[in-house]
Amino acid sequence: MPSLLPRRLLVPVLLCALAVLVARPTDATDGGHGSGAGLSAQVARLYEEAAKATQEYEEGRRESEAQRSKVRRYEELLDRERQQVAALHEDLGRLARAQYRGGGGLPLSMQMALADPDDLTRGQRSVWQANLVVDNAIRKSRRAEARLAADQAKARAAWQSLEERNAELAGLRTEIEEKLQAARSRLEGQAEASVAAGSCPDAVRLDQPEARVTRPWVAPVETYELSASFGSGGMRWADRHTGQDFAVPVGTPVRAVGAGRVVEVSCGGAFGMQIVVRHPGGYCTQYAHLAAVAVDQGDRVVPGQWIGQSGSTGNSTGPHLHFEVRVTPEMGSALDPVPWLARHGVSL
């Protein structure tokens, strides 16, 4: 009679497998492209990939320019060698013509018959030595020309290889940027829907890049163009502009400018999705019009940490980061952030 032990073990195993399948997150919530967290992470990843592809392309382009300059130098040297060989051939021709003219155009046998033996020996030796010098110079120049031609061929092959690699890198960069643009558009749509509903989505825990910040204070975004500045007037603001705007694409990682604690994360209103951080000493910094947040209220942050992603939520005419420095966490206590950052060693 077969043992019942295998069947008794089989039931718990099947139940455990079923429990694992039930507990496993679905694609809609495990960071897939359809979820807000997955989309934010995708944008951040593509942002880094685009930056890396651009860096590699620029490095390849500089290498290609260096190789092309080397090819041009070899061409110039080859041209000089060829001119030198032509000149040496001309010298050899002049020697032959001078020898002929010195003999009065007589055949060599007649010159030998009429000439003084000692003069003939000296003349022949001089002509022979001159011919030898010119021949040696021509051979030496030919060897140099061959070496230069080989070096030029190597440089040209390296240049062409770099050009092919650069074309591949350019295509890869374009492909990444197209994917990034599409993901940014979806992220912006999700952010606007959250702000319209007045409820912030959960914080997105973005994979932070390798530690690159060694300073205690940094700019809120790594690459940017400055747009509206503190105190600017315009129809978009009730009074005057209360911060410094950084024009950046949707999804650009936003960094904490210094160490501190998150005192506010909110959605809705003129600032859209925003974060406020209090720093040691009492000053606060605000990051507004975001498309995603990567911290929760109460979190501690360090300089350069990604705390969110830029967007165009709230009262905004285009993608940018609105950055403020405040004496208190509330509106109405803002001061000019540019000189404040300058005092902390950050020049915009």
Rank of each mutant, 00 (worst) to 15 (best):
P2Y: 05
S3A: 15
L15I: 15
C16F: 12
A19H: 06
V22C: 15
R24T: 11
T26M: 04
D30M: 08
S35G: 08
G36N: 12
L39T: 00
Y47Q: 15
E49S: 11
A53V: 03
E56T: 09
E58Q: 15
G60T: 12
R61V: 09
E63Y: 09
S64Q: 13
R68T: 10
R72M: 09
E75C: 07
L77M: 13
Q84F: 12
A87L: 14
L88D: 10
L88E: 13
D91C: 07
L95H: 12
R97M: 12
S109N: 08
T121W: 12
S126A: 13
A130N: 05
V133N: 03
V134A: 03
I138M: 15
K140I: 07
S141C: 12
A144L: 09
A150K: 11
Q152D: 07
A153P: 03
R156T: 07
W159H: 11
E163T: 13
L172Y: 05
R173K: 12
R173Y: 04
I176M: 02
E178N: 02
K179C: 01
Q181H: 10
R184W: 00
E188L: 14
Q190H: 11
A191L: 02
A193C: 04
A196V: 08
A197V: 02
P209L: 03
E210M: 09
P216Y: 00
P216V: 02
W217V: 06
W217H: 13
S229M: 12
G231K: 15
R236Q: 15
H241N: 14
T242H: 11
Q244W: 06
D245M: 08
D245C: 14
V250C: 15
P253L: 07
V254A: 06
R255M: 11
A256F: 05
G260W: 03
M273P: 13
I275Y: 04
R278H: 07
R278N: 09
H279G: 11
G282E: 08
C284S: 12
Y287K: 01
H289S: 06
H289Y: 08
A291F: 00
A294F: 02
A294K: 00
V295W: 01
R300E: 13
R300H: 10
V301M: 02
Q305E: 13
G308V: 03
S312Q: 14
G318L: 10
H320A: 09
E324N: 05
E324G: 04
E324H: 08
R326N: 02
L335N: 02
D336F: 09
W340L: 01
R343N: 06
G345K: 06
V346Y: 03
S347T: 08
L348W: 05
